[in-house]
């Protein structure tokens, strides 16, 4: 038996909108720790890892570990039927091939339940070790989204370079080149508007903008985004989900042979 009641149902709606274009089908894993997902895109270049910790739910009952295969497009269709202020409860019985999403309006005057068919998904799970990164950049998520969008109108790839001068996003295409430099900026009153650069050593990596733009669908989940870079690892683009967990996107770089 599984029953997860999320008062801030809009969080789940936003999570789905941020992953459904990257991944078609995925297993949601439910355990005492929380509700999680790890899935790769079809070309095995990008990976999304989601965690919504059990403590973040108003009610969290998960009698035994359960993995539920869902088509994310279908799940998104169902969650779009929930109001932004609705409380969402996810329910499943042991051995059942369906999951139920229950939507309650804040005033309790409307209660809806949507039952969705589950599917068997053979998913590959990757072990992602804790790592030291050469540089970690924290910046406003809207600013990062804007940069990715702007650069993708010029080129297909972005070079992200971190030096003591700041973080530089560069692209080149048929019509020309573009460089955007963001410097560390902690002097603002609002911490979510600051840009903080922690650099152990300079790093410069190239990534496909198509994926970066897809990751920025998670922008509504968090004011800040953290970009962790190392020349030996895929980049991690992380959006913290207030008091609940995170959504992390991993992207393998483009490498010059």
């Amino acid at each position: 038996m599984l029953e997860l009641r999320l008062v801030q149902g809009s969080l789940l709606k936003k999570v789905l909108e941020s992953v459904k274009d990257l991944v078609t089908d995925a297993n949601f894993d439910c355990s005492a720790t929380g509700f999680s997902l790890q899935a790769m895109d079809s070309s095995h270049v990008a990976l999304v890892a989601l965690l919504l910790r059990s403590e973040g739910f108003e009610h969290y009952r998960c009698d035994r570990n359960l993995s539920m295969g869902m088509n994310l497009n279908n799940m998104s269709k169902m969650l779009k039927c929930a109001g932004n202020d609705d409380i969402i409860t996810i329910k499943a019985d042991d051995g059942s091939d369906t999951v139920t999403f229950m939507f309650e309006s804040p005033t309790q005057d409307k209660i809806a339940d949507f039952e969705m068919k589950l599917m068997d998904i053979d998913s590959e799970h990757l072990g992602i070790p804790e790592a030291e990164y050469h540089a970690i950049v924290r910046m406003p998520s809207a600013e990062f989204a804007r940069i990715c969008k702007d650069l993708s109108s010029i080129g297909d790839t972005v070079v992200i370079s971190v030096t003591k001068e700041g973080v530089k996003f560069s692209t080149r295409g048929d019509i020309g080149t573009a460089n955007i430099v963001c410097r560390q900026n902690t002097s603002v009153d609002k911490p979510e508007e600051s840009t903080i650069i922690e650099m152990n050593e300079p790093v410069s990596l190239t990534f496909a903008l198509r994926y970066m733009n897809s990751f920025t669908k998670a922008t509504p989940l968090a004011n800040s985004v953290t970009i962790s870079l190392s020349s030996e690892l895929p980049v991690v683009v992380e959006y913290k989900i207030a008091e609940m967990g995170y959504i992390r996107f991993y992207l393998a770089p483009k490498i010059e042979d």
Binding site: S43, H44, L47, L126, Y250, A252, D257
Partner: peptide, 14 residues
């Protein structure tokens, strides 16, 4: 020539 690396080159399957 620039090629796209795969995640499998960095992370092991578990």
């Amino acid at each position: 020539y620039i090629r796209q690396a795969m995640l499998a080159g960095y992370f092991m399957q578990v």
